[in-house]
Each structure stands twice: as structure tokens, then as C-alpha cells.
Nucleic acid binder design. Structure first.
Lengths: 196, 196
DNA sequence: GTTATTTCTTGCGTGCCACGCAAAGTTGCT
DNA sequence: AGCAACTTTGCGTGGCACGCAAGAAATAAC
């Protein structure tokens, strides 16, 4: 069952709303853009916006959530024999290679968007949900990989730890002056985790 | 400079508001209690509520944030020579000994409150802030302990990993049926972290 | 190809929330 | 007591999230 016209249109609208929300917030700040503006940008009614997202903040972070979930998929795709730590490191280094920018999003917008989100108190809660999404994606991939019973805490713990490492690297990356590449920071963060 | 009457009264009001917010939300659910109700319970105007907390959710989680910060203080208080991992494990096991309930909060309310928060989408973002507060508290204690330069990612990574472990243990604890004690779960979670 | 059905969009109305502002009330210092 | 600093309060505003029902569009059935 391939996606019909209906479904494709829905996804396109969703994506357009998320992108518009991000771009406008970068340009004018979180409080400088109303839900109304985002809807107008996409050519849709304000009421429809709330059919897709239950808050302005959710829309702004939606692309980041999608991306976080892809990290889980990438981990699942590693060869099954590979040891867990190696699989995780390979996945994360690949994933964060180019700043980890979703398709069709200009680098500059993504970077500025992350900074804006982290600097805006009203958005920090939503950012933490992105991090939680990455943790969940990793945890479930890890659980599947190791074939552990659902009573084991290992997947959650390791998923959370890896998410924390990526998060620390991302923070440093965003505030580095002069700019530094992201990948080595992720590498360092994962090393600290392994060394603990 | 000990706290004057003014400051003590403020803290008392803050605490009373947080506790009322938690208790009422447990009784009636998040949407069943208005800011107005919480303010009334404490005998203060609704406008004053927002002088203390910038949202209903923040008030409900305020006690948990306080407690998370105490974990950082507890880690600082460990003997300076002790190896990091041992210090962390001792701190966390002590901290989560009795379910880690703040003073003057009935056990039942704390437990039910955590469940309510985790089950309510509108509160999950705020719960994640509690977790972030614990991470920050631990990170800064670790950085101080090890005397690392602020360029090192280690404190953030380890703080985040430990917070993730505690969080995983807490989740399991809340959903365990029949109930199990929290401490062994924390122990298991920290072991997974050390084994990774 | 027309009709029936499901699904999505939209407008409207409602209730709540967060906060700016300025007036009134407290507390603390001398 | 008197003054300065701070807190509480009421009022008003703008915005947000969502329930509901009517209209429009896509899909399915005949």
C-alpha cells in the first residue's frame, strides 16, 4: 500500500508548517511570530495548524524529532554481529557528520534554529523532548539488537547516556567560538562515556 | 546574613503553592485544577501565583527540581579523595533510598504525583526539566570535583548519563507491579552504565 | 461516471493562561 | 515615626489550544 495522494499531501503540509515555523522563529524570535503567521506562510487556516501540531513549540522542533528518530533507524541498520559500542559509535559519528541537518533545510537556518531554541526558555522544554525522542529511538534499537527482556534497564540507560553525550557535544558545538566541527566533539563525548 | 522575615515568608509561600499544585493535580488531574484553585488553596491572588511560577506545570514540578539540586549538593559533600564513580554511586544510592521524597510531602502524594506527571502529555516537558536540573547539578559538582577546564565535555556527559540512569530506574519503579523498592533499580542502572 | 463515504479543512466560540502596568499594602532600616 | 524597598493585587490584553459542526476534497463503490 503506497501512500495515496491524500497521505502525501498531508506529509507535505506537515513538513511545510514545521519548516515555516522554524524559519520564521529564527528570523523574528519565538514571540515575534504567531501561529497565525505560520499558517499564513503555508496558505492554510490557523485552525488547521493545530490539527498538525498541538503547540507552536512542537512545530518548531518537529524536524529535529524526525531526525532523532532516524538515528534509531540507523543503529538498527548496522550489521547484527557488530559489538554494541562499536555500532553506536559508528552510527553517531555518521549521523552527526555534517551537523546533521535534515533535507531541504538550509544549514544556516538549522544552526540558528538550534541556538534560538536553546536560548529561549519557552522552548527548552520542547528541546528536551527532542532529546527524549533520540533516547527512545536508541533504546528501542538497542533492546532489539541485544534481544533483552523488557525488564532490563540496560537499553534505557545506555540510550539515555548516548543521548546525553550527543547533547553535550551539540551544546559545545553551538557555543564554540571560533566554530569547530561537530564530529570530533561527539567522538570526545562518547569516549568520556566509555571511560567512565 | 540569615534570611529575614521577608525572605522566609516568600519561601513558605512558594513551597505552599508548589505543594498545593501537586496535591490538587494528583486529586483532580492536571486539567481538573485551575491556577485560580491553587492560589485560593494558599490564600493568595491568582496574579501572585504567577509572580512565583511562570506556569502551572512549573509549580507542580518545583519540589522535584529542588530535590534534584540537592543531589548535586550531596555529591559535593563526598570526601574529596574518593574516586568519582564510587562517590556517584554512594550519593545516588543514599539519595534514592526512601523513594527520595521531599520533607513534608506525604509519600503517597509524591508517588502518585510522579505517575500523574509522566502520564500527562502536557507535563512531560516539565518533567524533562527536572531531569535536566539533576544533570546540571551533577555536572557542576563533577566539574568542581575533578577540577577540569570548562572546555571538557566529561562533566556534562557523565552527569547526563547518571541522570539517565536514575530516570530509567524511576520509570521502572513507578510501573512495577507488584511494587519493588527503588534502590536496587538505581543500583542496576548504574551498573549498566559502568559496564557499557 | 455518478454517487456514497471517508477524511481533511475551516470558522466560530470558549475557557484558560501568562504577563505588563500601576495602585495599594507590607516589611525593614534608621 | 518616617522613608525606602519590596510584594501583593486587580485589571486589562493578547494569545493559545481545542471542541464542534458545516463545507470541501479525495477515495471507494457501484
Amino acid at each position: 500500500m503506497e501512500p495515496g495522494l491524500r497521505e502525501r499531501k498531508k506529509q507535505a503540509t506537515r513538513r511545510a508548517l514545521a519548516l515555516a515555523a522554524l524559519r520564521l522563529s529564527v528570523e523574528r524570535g519565538f514571540d515575534g511570530v504567531l501561529v497565525e503567521d505560520i499558517a499564513a506562510e503555508v496558505g492554510v487556516s490557523p485552525r488547521t495548524f493545530n490539527n498538525y501540531f498541538s503547540s507552536k513549540a512542537e512545530a518548531i522542533c518537529a524536524l529535529a524529532v524526525d531526525r532523532a528518530q532516524r538515528a534509531g533507524a540507523a543503529l538498527r541498520a548496522r550489521p547484527p554481529g557488530e559489538p554494541l559500542r562499536a555500532a553506536i559509535e559508528a552510527t553517531m559519528l555518521a549521523e552527526f557528520a555534517g551537523g546533521a541537518v535534515p533535507e531541504h533545510v538550509p544549514d544556516r537556518v538549522w544552526f540558528a534554529g538550534l541556538r534560538m531554541v536553546l536560548a529561549t526558555p519557552a522552548m527548552q522544554g520542547e528541546y528536551l523532548r527532542v532529546r527524549a525522542a533520540m533516547q527512545d529511538a536508541l533504546s528501542s534499537a538497542i533492546a532489539e539488537r541485544l534481544g533483552l527482556p523488557p525488564t532490563s534497564l540496560l537499553p534505557e540507560v545506555v540510550g539515555g547516556a548516548v543521548a546525553a553525550a550527543c547533547d553535550a557535544a551539540t551544546h559545545r558545538w553551538l557555543h564554540a567560538d571560533p566554530p569547530v566541527p561537530l564530529q570530533p566533539l561527539v567522538e570526545e563525548a562518547l569516549r568520556h562515556l566509555a571511560d567512565y
